[in-house]
């Protein structure tokens, strides 16, 4: 136990201000968003992540948002286990036809008003997999999308910036 505590104190708090090393405006964005989340979403924004056909690369970077450096929860943003608890769907991948209906059901199960982000190049346009007998391509081919975050995969900072900009708009 002592070793554990020692490690915790030694490392301290490593969470970084949301400024991509060179963009101080993001921190301002973060602050502005917090105010909006407070006002519009009652202090917390719940995200349901849906992998609709991704290669899992996007998921790894979405996961990273929860590590101590990015610490997404400090803005009152957190991931939830059910679409019924969600304000926002964060969808990755070209939508495989085998996931198409599941994605629709998730969308319908999410209470209104809801937001949808298509994260990653695949979600944006089908990416390198495109459309085929097995892939329906872009997320917007299946459900309405409010914001696209490009990248293969988008970095945690790109995800965070995109997320915050959507909330602000």
């Amino acid at each position: 136990m002592l070793k554990t505590l020692k490690k915790i104190f030694q490392i301290g708090i490593i969470t970084e201000p949301v400024d991509a090393p060179s963009s101080p405006e993001t921190e301002a964005l973060g602050k502005a968003c917090q105010a909006i989340i407070d006002a519009k979403f009652n202090g917390s924004l719940a995200i349901r992540q849906v992998d609709a056909g991704s290669c899992n690369g996007c998921e790894l970077e979405i996961h990273a948002l929860n590590n101590a450096f990015y610490n997404l929860e400090r803005f009152g943003i957190h991931f939830v286990a059910s679409p019924r608890h969600a304000d926002l769907l964060l969808v990755t991948g070209p939508v495989s036809r085998h996931m198409e209906e599941a994605l629709r059901i998730v969308y319908e199960s999410t209470p209104d008003p809801k937001l949808v982000i298509a994260a990653g190049d695949c979600a944006a346009c089908g990416g390198i997999f495109g459309e085929s007998y097995a892939s329906a391509g872009a997320v917007s081919n299946v459900i309405p999308v409010d914001l696209v975050i490009r990248g293969c995969p988008p970095t945690p900072m790109q995800l965070l910036t995109g997320l915050l900009s959507l909330i602000r708009s």
């Binding site: 056909g53 991704s54 991948g93 495989s96 085998h98 599941a102 997999f129 495109g130 085929s132 097995a134």
Partner: peptide, 11 residues
Amino acid sequence: LGYLHKGIEKT
């Protein structure tokens, strides 16, 4: 499984 089948072999 098979939910993520997106036709990689064909693509």
